[in-house]
Design a protein around this nucleic acid. Structure first.
Lengths: 221, 221
DNA sequence: TTTTTTCTCATGTCAGTGTTATAGCAATAT
DNA sequence: ATATTGCTATAACACTGACATGAGAAAAAA
């Protein structure tokens, strides 16, 4: 029977360890392939057979490695939020906190429009196959640590009147997410440019949070 | 004989007309059944075979009547927006325009949470089967006529500083839709009550639109 | 009345999906 | 050398959307 298999006496190259490494690499490769498939051909094309065919293995491998399609999609879900987090971190910091918040929102929008298929995986859980675990959903909130800290800074400097940075951050998230969602579903294609309205929406919300006149905002008189 | 049908020569009821009426009734019945299936078992269960089984006919009937699954879902899409429009019209009017706007938003949220499967059909077009026609998407905007007119009233009375009621209405829609969407995807289950944050989000946005202190809003000091 | 044409629908089929049971292969362990 | 273990390809099952075929009834024509 299997004793402590990981202990490879003098062996620097334990078989199990090597196997695990290989498994990890293979796992990453599979996720990358699935990611490409998702980005290139959309949600509909993301089938276990297609992934297996792309990787060059059988579907059994995918099932032993991820358990089910839900398991695989779960990882893509987390990967999507990691990408989003990275996109937000790439926003150049600014001394003007409000402008920085606006830039974060714009980066969020650009990411969502450029990676609409990922965005669908993250927010359109329409079937059990695309419904992530509760723990994953909770974990996804950590992608907004930058937003939360910036909001907290605004509260500290008394730019915002509210006191709960998490709550305010979620409000801003909802505003941005809502506009992006309607853009992606084709409801915002007509009339004025969507980008312009997006900016105006953010500025309006920030104005409501500051309770004071906001720069670059149209004035009543 | 088999001649018992409605074809009285002097008959007021033309055969074709009766046939069409029957078709229309049948069509409505099928949509009702599909609607029930959707509400009770979700998007995943909405298959042509299940609908046919529920109605008691073959799938061929559905295809001759709706062309494809897209065609059937299209009608459900429109029906969903009609239901939403009806829900908004059910909101009791108020003299206070801002409170009325808030009530509209709350009704929107209640509708979305209570009919989450319909909401998914309307806003989670993840596959070609659930992607409505462009004309349907444009038509859906008419469900918000009440919102637009109320916003216009706010502009007329100079409560709002903006001038384009359509734009402002879309901003409000985006805010409400975003919060509801995050609620439905399970991102807003923790910490404070979602309903409370929802109200706060609306009030904040309206405050940003009015550029003045908003009642029932926490003050800085 | 009889025949022909037209229309509708049930059946069966095709390609595709997620998932799994079976069986085979390679490498350890005994 | 044999037994055991872990991994994987194959093939199958129960589904799905969509459609071609053919049967049967109703309507029109004779």
């Amino acid at each position: 029977m299997r004793k402590n298999s990981v202990i490879g006496k003098n062996g620097v190259t334990d078989y199990r360890a090597a196997q695990d490494l290989h498994q990890q690499a293979l796992r990453q490769g599979i996720l990358d392939d699935a990611s490409n498939l998702l980005l290139r051909e959309g949600l509909q094309a993301l089938s276990m057979r297609r992934i297996a065919q792309m990787v060059g293995c059988s579907t059994t491998v995918l099932y032993t490695m991820f358990g089910s399609k839900q398991g695989l999609v779960n990882e893509l879900y987390l990967k999507g939020f990691a990408m989003l987090c990275q996109a937000l971190e790439g926003v150049p910091k600014s001394d003007n906190l409000l402008e920085y918040l606006i830039a974060l929102g714009q980066a969020y929008r650009v990411f969502a429009l450029a990676n609409s298929t990922y965005y669908a995986v993250m927010f359109c859980q329409t079937s059990p196959e695309f419904t992530p675990t509760k723990s994953c959903i909770q974990q996804s909130w950590s992608s907004f640590v930058l937003l939360v800290s910036t909001v907290q800074a605004c509260i500290d400097v008394e730019i915002f009147a509210e006191d709960d940075s998490q709550e305010v951050a979620k409000m801003l998230w909802a505003v941005v997410h809502g506009h992006v969602g309607l853009e992606l579903t084709g409801h915002f294609t007509d009339s004025a440019s969507a980008a312009e309205r997006f900016n105006r929406t953010i500025r309006t919300t920030l104005a409501g949070l500051t309770h004071q006149q906001f720069p670059n905002q149209k004035q009543r008189k």
